[in-house]
């Protein structure tokens, strides 16, 4: 863990503030996008922005970028599980509507 602590120091408060401002900007973008009629792609745009935000939070704030492989594997497992669940769930909904 000592290594991660040291690397963590390299990011610095400036970096964190920048990321935070970035997250705020993306939130503003989400709100703006909700006000524009994007039709079918509205949900896709929102999910895309949310994905970028989650990526930033997970890699920078949660230190996944600098953690050991084991930690990343744990998170990948969780993401894999949720992606598979959503795919299977929507396999029902998509075909049900036809």
């Amino acid at each position: 863990m000592a290594n991660s602590e040291q690397e963590h120091a390299h990011i610095g408060y400036g970096g964190y503030t920048l990321i935070w401002l970035g997250l705020l900007a993306l939130t503003a973008l989400t709100v703006t996008a909700a006000g524009v009629n994007l039709g079918n792609v509205a949900v896709a745009v929102t999910i895309l922005i949310a994905t970028v935000k989650s990526y930033l939070v997970a890699t920078i704030f949660m230190h996944l970028k600098i953690e050991s492989r084991l930690f990343r594997v744990v998170v990948y497992a969780a993401i894999f599980f949720i992606v598979v669940s959503i795919i299977l769930l929507f396999s029902d909904y998509t075909f049900l509507r036809e």
């Binding site: 599980f81 075909f95 049900l96």
Partner: peptide, 22 residues
């Protein structure tokens, strides 16, 4: 075991494709 949950719901109104997969 994490991929079989909908076998509890075959009669609940489910698409044929999903039912076969589950």
């Amino acid at each position: 075991g994490s991929l079989v949950w909908a076998h509890h719901m075959f009669t609940a109104g489910m698409s044929g494709v999903a039912a076969i997969a589950f």
